[in-house]
Design a protein around this nucleic acid. Structure first.
Lengths: 159, 159
DNA sequence: TATTGTTATACTCTATAACTATA
DNA sequence: TATAGTTATAGAGTATAACAATA
């Protein structure tokens, strides 16, 4: 997989790049995001907005840049996303009293309910569906392997 | 990972979404592509152009749409990519004699050399570096798990 | 009528630079 | 001087519609 091609793959999977870990990761990431976006659609948010909401829920009110840096979104891109969340009535831009340059992004009651009741179910269902072909042990293994890869390559990454 | 958050993760990895397989896959895919793009840069091609070249090399001359469908690139996007490869002298647009609507994209001698001598090395080095934290057995496991996921979700995928 | 490649167009995502208000 | 948020802008990547040549 790393270098050469003489790999035995299922018939319909005998595409040229099916031995490439990069191609596989890219495909898998696209699939998960697509399915997650479809599942989130009825609730009026996108996967990235989900990331913002859950980040606030777990870490408390934070500035836009703090949130963006945790989930890999530029501060200029955060502006539009927070605009959208604010228009949806899910997030409020509250000025940080200690530093009035920044906001303390806060979840609305509707967002609290969404994050703690609805979204965990959507998240679980989507992941269960996507990971269906794997056993519980295999799922744990997969997460462990990818987490180690991402951690190891986090520094070097150009990104 | 599938649903709940009470996961034990390394300190610096205790980000809100580090238990989400979708977030991890997305991060990993970004890292690999970034590193691969950096490695390919000196050779004048991008990861997607690499995909086109290797597809022609393995399956022989094909139409732009045939190639695009195998690596997930729209036919309108293929036009620009092939333009670029043609300007670089790596690919030639030869009319298919049996169906003059389509081309039989062909590798130039320079591309043949690149694909068979240079790129396998670049590919191997990039993957070895990215997969460094995993043992050989773990690498095989990873590819197997992701391949099964991608295959299983290929049909349902909205894309 | 249908299909391949093409062009024009638009939409999303992202990033850079410059501005404002605060520090 | 530096930082958080904002705006304008531009660049990738992608997708839709319409067209010419060919089937």
């Amino acid at each position: 997989m790393t270098s050469e091609q003489a790999q035995v793959v299922p018939k319909n999977l005998a595409e040229p790049l099916w031995g490439s870990i990069g191609f596989l990761l890219s495909k898998a990431a696209d699939q998960v995001e697509s399915q997650f976006a479809t599942a989130l659609g009825p609730h009026g948010i996108t996967p990235r907005e989900y990331g913002i909401l859950t980040t606030i829920a777990r870490r408390g009110p934070q500035s836009q840049q703090q949130i963006g840096s945790q989930i890999g979104i530029d501060r200029t891109t955060m502006v539009n996303l927070v605009d959208s969340l604010e228009e949806s009535g899910l997030v409020e831009r509250v000025r940080d009293a200690k530093d009035r340059r920044r906001y303390a992004l806060t979840l609305s009651p509707a967002a609290e309910k969404l994050v703690h009741k609805t979204l965990p179910v959507v998240d679980a269902e989507t992941h269960d569906q996507y990971l269906a072909p794997l056993t519980a042990a295999e799922r744990d293994t997969l997460v462990d392997l990818i987490r180690r890869l991402v951690a190891h390559n986090a520094d070097n990454a150009a990104r």
